[in-house]
Amino acid sequence: MVKHHDVVGRYVTIEVDDCEYKVFYLQNGKGIPLICQHTAGCHNHQWRGLLEDEEIIKNYNVIAYDLPRHGKSDPPHNKEFWKEDYKLTADHFCNFIVKLCEALDLKDPIFMGSSFGGNVALQLALRHPNKFRAVIPVEAADHSPGYYLDWWRHPHANAAQVCGSGTWDLMAPQSPEKDRWLTWHYYTQGAEAFKGDLHFYSVDHDLRNELKNIDGHKCPVIMMTGTYDYLTPPEASENTARQIKGGVYIEMPDIGHFPMSENHELFRIYLIEALKIINERTNK
C-alpha cells in the first residue's frame, strides 16, 4: 500500500551568535504557529504523531525542527566545529529559537519543548515573553542538576547504546511497545550531541531564583509532566509552576519522560487541554 503524507520538510539558513546554521524542520497544518523542540540528543522524529494529528493541524501550524548538531541540522558551517567541545548554553539556545522563529516569519507562536526543550521554554518565558503567545514546558523544572556526566561519551562504552538505553526506564511500561522501541531507536542516533545538550540541561539552566520574574499572565506557562518521569518528577514541575505568576501545571498519568513519542495518543489528550487554556487566556 502506498500512502503519501502531508508533512513537508525544508531547510532554512540562519545566523546565530556568529554561527551559520542550516536548519531542517518539518511542518504541517494551518493556523496558530506551534513550534516544537525535541529532547536532548534526539531530533524532530519525536513529534511525528503531532505533525499528523488531524485535530491539531486543523487549527495549528505545527513546526518541529532539528536543533543544530541533531538529526538533519548540521553543526555550524562557518566554524571548525570539530575543534570545539560542544556545550550548549541558555543564551545560545534562546537566541537560536528566537532567530529561527523570525526566519520562518512566525507571528506570536506557541513554543513547546520537552525535557531540555521544556527547560528552555521556561527560559524563553523569562527572557522573551513578548515574542511568544505562550510556552508549554513538557517534563521541565527550574533546575535539573546531576546529568552532565562523562560516561555519556565514555571511550569504553558504546555511546549509542548508552544513550538509547538511558531512555528505557524513563518511559511508562504501558506505553505502546512499538513506540517505546522507536523512542529508543531515535536516541541511538543522537549520541554525539547528547552530552553537550546536557550541559544546558544540568549546568547552565538554573531558574530557582528567577521564577518570580516570569509572568504567566503576560506569556502563559502551561507545564505538563508524566507520572513515570523520575528525571523530572511531577512534584518538581508542579513546584516550578506554583512559583510562576499565573503558572499552570497538568499532570499526565500513565506516561513518562518522552510523552510525544512514547504515547502520542495519550499525550494529545493533555496537550489539547493545555491549548484550550492558552486559547482562553489569549483570546480575552
Rank of each mutant, 00 (worst) to 15 (best):
K3H: 01
H4F: 13
D17N: 14
D18P: 00
E20W: 00
Y25M: 07
L26G: 00
I35R: 01
C36H: 07
H38C: 12
T39S: 14
C42G: 06
H43L: 10
N44F: 10
R48N: 13
R48T: 14
L51W: 07
I56A: 05
I57W: 01
N59S: 13
Y60I: 03
Y60F: 15
N61W: 01
A64M: 11
Y65W: 15
P68M: 01
H70L: 02
P76Y: 09
K79A: 09
E80L: 09
F81A: 14
F81R: 04
W82H: 13
K87S: 02
A90D: 06
A90C: 10
A90V: 10
F93L: 06
C94R: 05
N95P: 00
L104F: 04
L106G: 00
K107S: 02
F111W: 10
M112A: 08
S114I: 14
F116K: 04
G117L: 10
G117D: 05
G118M: 12
N119W: 00
N119F: 00
L122W: 01
L122H: 02
L126R: 05
L126V: 05
R127A: 09
R127H: 04
R127Y: 04
H128T: 07
K131Q: 12
R133Q: 13
I136E: 02
A140N: 04
D142V: 07
G146D: 12
G146F: 10
L149T: 05
D150L: 03
P155T: 12
A157K: 14
N158A: 12
A160Y: 03
V162I: 14
C163R: 08
G164I: 07
W168C: 09
W168A: 11
D169Q: 13
L170E: 02
A172G: 01
W181F: 13
Y186F: 15
T188A: 04
Q189R: 13
A193N: 04
F194S: 06
K195V: 04
D204C: 03
D206Y: 05
D206R: 05
D206L: 02
R208L: 09
N209W: 00
N209R: 12
E210D: 15
L211Q: 09
N213Y: 15
D215C: 06
G216S: 07
C219G: 02
P220Y: 07
V221C: 11
M223S: 14
T225D: 11
G226P: 05
G226N: 09
Y230P: 06
L231S: 13
N239I: 10
T240A: 07
T240P: 02
R242P: 00
Q243F: 12
K245Y: 06
G246T: 13
G247W: 00
G247F: 02
V248K: 14
I250A: 13
P253Q: 08
I255C: 08
F258I: 10
F258E: 03
F258K: 02
P259T: 05
P259Q: 04
S261L: 09
S261V: 12
N263D: 15
L266E: 03
L266K: 12
R268N: 10
Y270T: 06
Y270G: 07
I272N: 11
K276C: 10
K276H: 13
I278M: 09
N279Y: 07
T282E: 11
